[in-house]
Each structure stands twice: as structure tokens, then as C-alpha cells.
Design a protein around this nucleic acid. Structure first.
Lengths: 217, 217
DNA sequence: AATTTCACCGATAGTACTATCGGTGAAAAA
DNA sequence: TTTTTCACCGATAGTACTATCGGTGAAATT
């Protein structure tokens, strides 16, 4: 807690208020869904008048847009970092587990962003939808890159599509395991990693010898 | 088209109107999401006055409840039927493919119910949520039963949970493939079946010899 | 034939929210 | 010090929707 009232400049104070609005927006979105996010609620939660909301955002849609953008950025950043770190594992077996564990941990570190994205992805009316789809696409691209680096055959259009489908499947599996963990059904994250490894044995049979050093899945 | 005005009894006419409201409700829910479903729109689409909506449903929530219930019933029924039919295949290989193909086809026969359920499942404020969760649970139970029948080891609590997790994963994979197909990314459903078979090779290694005749996955 | 029932209608009260406007005081600029 | 800027406020017009009410006519019942 602050010792005394900090001497904030005007722009610093405004920035702080905006951040409070964003934080309140995420909390409401997670707890009550998109329909529950009103200018009245978000302003009250941030400690300002409803009308002052419009000092920071053009309208309600503008806030949703900003929330979607930030959520997408943060999740992609977390996923990117997880991918970087999966290369640090000592051996192939641990590297494979890390390639599954780190994204799961990244998701569990931001459960509200994950849930919000999952919801928005399927809602045709959501302004957040485009960001949710972009995040899902980035996730898929991440797995496609990993599998390609590991020597997954991509000779023709059919191979290419199969690769996309498998990457899509790995994403869906990861989401399902993360959701089960967040909902308390799968208390041990390591068991979730086990299951992902089990499924992966199916498609890893398709690999050719790697072209360049193993860097992920 | 009807040759002339059918001589409907009063209760038949009322039933018809109610069905029109339900049909309109599904269409709006699919196209615009839950927030887009208003008594004004659904009544207009069904060709009655907004106030007459309340002759058929207690309130807006009551309609959503009825829609959720019916969507869940229909999807579960379609899935149950698919499961029955997967036993008809000539050999083990075809039986496995049928166990993946038939649920996919069942989903693709009711794309709007599938999308509505997918959305509601993640929305904390949705009255449809309970039905979506029930459908997902039934789906999981279906796969659990199949795997158990095939000889999946269930010695302790850990085995049991792993089985649940794998069933959960198979459901997530099926949904992902169905969604990709409905969105036009995976035009050939047979390729989606291929991918599901590929993933299944991972967990089928865990099987013990089947206790009773193969009846599914 | 007389009476009752009821699906439907238009009108409207009530509610919740969005977005705008003019005013205020303290920070920032002059 | 004087002037300007601007984040914030309360008030409120406007919008969209929910749910109720009394009335109506044709079907159903008597």
C-alpha cells in the first residue's frame, strides 16, 4: 500500500484511470459475459462517473475492441515465450513434455483472458471475435512451425491441409485440458501433459527425420 | 405448398405458432447470438405481435430454456443414433472410422444447434449453459463407454481420470474438426476422419484385449 | 342458439442502458 | 500571476426492450 497520496501528473492520472477501466472490464467480461459489460458497471467498478467513461473510450464498442486487442496480445506473448523456453529442456522426451506443459501453464496464468477468448471465438456478434480468431490462428501457426521443423512431410496441398488439421487438433486438445484444469476436473497439470503426449504419439508416427534441430513438439 | 387453408383446430394452430417461435428462435440465436434474441424479433419472425409472445412462453428466459432443452435433446439423440449405427461396419478398421465419421455427420446435420451449444457452453450468463454442459457430458460418457468396452484399463482412480480426460480430448478433437468443416476450412469430411484416426493411434496403444465384442471407437 | 374460452391484437407503463451537454476546479502553460 | 486545458461531474434526452392489460372475434362447448 502507498505511504501517502502520490503526486500524479494529469496524464499519469488519466492513464491510471484508463487502466482501472480495462481491468474492471476484464473482470466483468469474465464474470458476467459480454452482455453484462455496461458503461454503468465498468465506470462504477473503476470509481468514476458513468459519463466520464467517454473521456477514455469513444463508446462501449471501443472498450471491447481495446480489451480484445490487449487480451490477444497478452495470450500470444505468453504463448511465444512458452515456445522459446520449450527448447531449454535437457532431452527429447522432456522437450516434448515442455512443449505441451508451457502453453498449458501460460493459459492457466491468464484464465480470464483464456475464457473470454474462448467465448468470443464462437459469438458472431462479438467485437472481440476477430481477436479471438487471430489468437487461435497464431496458436495453430505455432504448432505448424514446430511440426514442420520436426520433419513433418509437406509434399503437396493435401499434406499441408493435414498438417493444419493436426495443428488445429493439438490446439483443441490443449484448450480442453486447460479448461478441465481450470474447472477443477483435472487437478494435476502433469496428468494433462501425459494425455497430450498420449495423443501426440498418433501423429508423431507421420514424421520424417528432422531437418533441423528439434525445437518444440 | 398447401393447396388451400388447412382447417386447423385451435390447439393445432397454437402448437404451430409455438413451433414457429422455436424455429425463429434457433435461427436468430445462430445468426446473432443470445443478445440478439429479443421478443420483438422472434415474434416478428414468427408472424405474431410482440405481446402474443407471452401466450406461448412465460418470459424471454423461458424461451431460451425451451430452446436449450430441445437443442440438447436433438443433438444427444443424433449422437445416440450415430453410436448405434457405428456397430454395423464390416470390419474393425471401418468400425473405427464409422465411430468418428457418424458423430461428425450428426453434428453437420444440425450446424446451428452445434454452434449454439458451443457458444452457450462458455457463457456464464447463458440459460442454455446447463444444457450445453449436459450434452458435452453425454458425449464424454459415450466415448468413455466405448473405450471401456474396448478394454481400456480402469484399475484405479488415476486410470479412471485418464479415461475421462481422453474422452474429453476426443470430444474436443471431434468438435474442432466439425467446426473446421462447417467453416469451410476442411472441405472433405473423410480427411477429418483420417485426422481423428491418426490421433486415436496414440491412445489405442493403451488398450488391453477387449472384454466384449468391439462396439465403437 | 347461447355461452364460454382463448389466441391474438394494440397500447403502454416500466426498466436499463447509451451517449451528450454544460459546468467545475485543479493542473499545466503562458 | 493570468490564462488555458481537460479529466471529471450531474443531469438528461434518446433508444430499445420487457412484460402487462383490456379488448376482439372466432373456435369450442353447452
Amino acid at each position: 500500500m502507498a505511504v501517502a497520496g502520490a503526486p500524479l501528473s494529469r496524464s499519469e492520472a488519466k492513464d491510471l484511470t484508463r487502466r482501472r477501466l480495462m481491468r474492471a472490464g476484464f473482470a466483468i467480461l469474465d464474470a458476467e459475459g459480454e452482455a453484462g459489460l455496461t458503461t454503468v458497471k465498468v465506470a462504477r467498478a473503476a470509481g468514476i462517473a458513468q459519463s466520464s467513461f467517454y473521456v477514455h473510450f469513444k463508446d462501449r464498442q471501443d472498450l471491447l475492441r481495446a480489451l480484445g486487442e490487449q487480451a490477444g496480445e497478452r495470450l500470444r506473448e505468453a504463448m511465444r515465450e512458452a515456445r522459446m523456453r520449450s527448447g531449454e529442456a535437457p532431452d527429447d522426451r522432456e522437450r516434448l513434455r515442455a512443449a505441451f506443459r508451457l502453453p498449458l501453464e501460460a493459459i492457466c496464468r491468464h484464465p480470464e483472458l483464456f475464457r473470454i477468448g474462448l467465448r468470443a471465438r464462437h459469438d458472431p456478434a462479438s467485437p472481440l471475435r476477430e481477436y479471438a480468431l487471430a489468437t487461435a490462428a497464431a496458436y495453430r501457426a505455432h504448432f505448424v512451425a514446430d511440426l514442420t521443423a520436426m520433419g513433418f512431410p509437406v509434399a503437396d496441398e493435401g499434406d499441408r491441409r493435414r498438417l493444419e488439421m493436426i495443428a488445429d487438433g493439438v490446439g483443441a486438445l490443449t484448450n480442453a485440458m486447460a479448461l478441465g484444469h481450470l474447472e477443477g476436473r483435472y487437478p494435476d497439470l502433469e496428468e494433462a501433459v501425459d494425455v497430450l503426449v498420449t495423443f501426440s504419439r498418433g501423429y508423431l508416427r507421420l514424421l520424417r527425420p528432422p531437418r533441423r534441430p528439434f525445437n518444440g513438439i
